[in-house]
């Protein structure tokens, strides 16, 4: 279970990998805020529909497009992503506490809480479910006539949410790698920092979605 642990202490006494992931997250903040800025600047400036919150009638055909955003579906996917963050912290706690004896009267639920494989799997599953919701949303938008080339809303919306979806995809792959390592040799306290770094990335993806959900989907 215990691989050789290599430490990367800096002059601050902090592990360089942890500093690196926080610096990376800081730079990612700038990336996503630039994409959100672009979306907000273009908001309401599309000359053709479909539009996010308003009906739009094509003057040439007379066809009326309904507001395109599907709030119930997106609310569900938001909830799934929020829950994935809970699963992630439970996975990290399970890895950190691996090897510690459970109380003699530990019940079924306490034993489940100590299973890092279960929580890593649940986190990856929730991430994949979120991606499924996004694939459904993108597909339905295209069927309703909104593509990345249709109007300013389509361009900025697909770019912003597409970048976020790509980050979620990377996170799911990262989680699956950790899960396979856990299944092969078991993750223990010596691996906790590696899981922690993945967890920080995953939570960051979650907080980005918190902002997107409000600014893009809820605010009209």
């Amino acid at each position: 279970m215990s691989a050789t642990v290599t430490h990367h202490y800096t002059t601050t006494g902090l592990d360089s990998r942890k500093i690196a992931i926080w610096a990376f997250i800081g730079s990612e903040c700038m990336l996503f805020i630039s994409l959100i800025s672009t979306y907000l600047i273009y908001k309401g400036r599309s000359v053709v529909g479909p539009l996010p919150h308003e009906k739009w009638t094509d003057p040439s055909t007379g066809h009326t497009f309904a507001p395109i955003l599907n709030i119930p579906v997106t609310s569900m996917s938001t909830f799934v992503l929020l829950m994935s963050s809970l699963f992630m912290v439970l996975a990290l706690a399970a890895v950190q506490n691996k090897g510690r004896p459970l109380p003699a009267n530990a019940g079924w639920w306490t034993r489940r809480l100590a299973s890092s494989q279960l929580w890593l799997f649940m986190t990856a599953l929730a991430g994949a479910t979120f991606l499924g919701f996004q694939a459904y949303e993108f597909t339905s938008f295209v069927h309703e006539g909104l593509t990345i080339r249709t109007n300013l809303f389509g361009s900025s919306f697909f770019t912003l949410t597409g970048f976020h979806g790509a980050h979620v995809t990377a996170g799911v792959l990262w989680l699956l790698v950790l899960l396979s390592i856990d299944a092969r040799r078991g993750l223990g306290p010596n691996d906790a920092l590696n899981v922690d770094i993945c967890a920080l990335y995953w939570h960051f993806v979650d907080v980005v979605w918190i902002a997107i959900f409000t600014l893009v989907y809820l605010i009209r």
Binding site: T12, W22, S37, F204
Partner: peptide, 29 residues
């Protein structure tokens, strides 16, 4: 989420600076 799940509340100040610095610059922009 940042304070509890990303445990920034419990972590070193340098991590807080690495996160909030770029975030503030980006938000101002």
């Amino acid at each position: 989420v940042v304070m509890f799940y990303m445990h920034l509340k419990y972590d070193h100040k340098l991590f807080r600076a690495l996160f909030t610095g770029p975030l503030l610059i980006a938000a101002t922009t």
